[in-house]
Simulated scan of single mutants.
Amino acid sequence: MGVEIERKFLVCGDNWKALGQGVLLRQGYLSSSPERTVRVRIEGESAMLTIKGKSSGATRNEWEYPVPLSDAEAFLDTLCERPIIEKKRYRIPFEGMVWEVDEFFGENAGLVVAEIELTAENQSFAKPDWIAEEVTHDARYFNSSLIRNPYSTW
């Protein structure tokens, strides 16, 4: 079992776009319950099935398994809750850490968030100048929440 410790922030401006190459991601949820999520994600030519437990602070249990691309496409096309999350992810190194910036499309267009994975909840880290308000504990920004309440409806 893995453990994910992640903090999430809104992003201001667009200077960050010049700092990394974006990759298109498509993901859907077989289960989007707050107690557990089961996600299918396609990134490029690879696919993963991810199971996450309920968050406790910025921490939650996480398991990831590779799945055949054709199976992931079938899950997204036929089994996953709607809408499917489509976004471009930029991985941007900054002062020894990597920020993952997600630019959303479709029903979540206009939303841009940055996440940083930590080894401990109290770990200190530097924030680039394009990092704005922290939304780690705001469930509206969970990807699994964006399928029930897309950003375009806020």
Rank of each mutant, 00 (worst) to 15 (best):
G22D: 06
W63R: 14
G28F: 10
W154D: 00
A74R: 13
E4G: 06
D71W: 10
S124K: 08
S46L: 02
G53T: 11
A139L: 15
T50F: 02
T50I: 13
L76Q: 15
N149I: 09
E100A: 14
S33Y: 01
G53D: 02
G28Q: 13
E73A: 15
G110A: 05
F125K: 13
Q21V: 13
S145P: 00
I5N: 02
R140K: 11
A74S: 12
P128R: 15
L30Y: 15
L76K: 14
R89P: 11
V67D: 10
I131T: 03
P150T: 13
Y29R: 01
V11K: 08
L146G: 11
V135R: 11
E6C: 01
K17H: 08
E86M: 05
S144G: 14
A120F: 03
M97P: 04
F105Y: 14
K127W: 13
R36N: 09
G106C: 03
W154K: 05
R140W: 12
T136R: 06
V67S: 04
Q27M: 02
V98I: 12
E35P: 03
Q21W: 06
D129H: 11
E35S: 12
W99D: 09
A58D: 11
R7F: 07
A47Q: 09
A74F: 06
E117N: 06
I5H: 02
G2T: 03
K54W: 07
T153V: 09
F104V: 01
V40E: 00
C80H: 13
S31N: 12
S124T: 15
L19T: 02
L19F: 04
E4V: 06
T37R: 09
W99C: 10
E45W: 04
S152W: 05
T37H: 05
L76V: 15
A139H: 03
Y151Q: 03
W130K: 12
K87F: 01
G106R: 00
R60I: 08
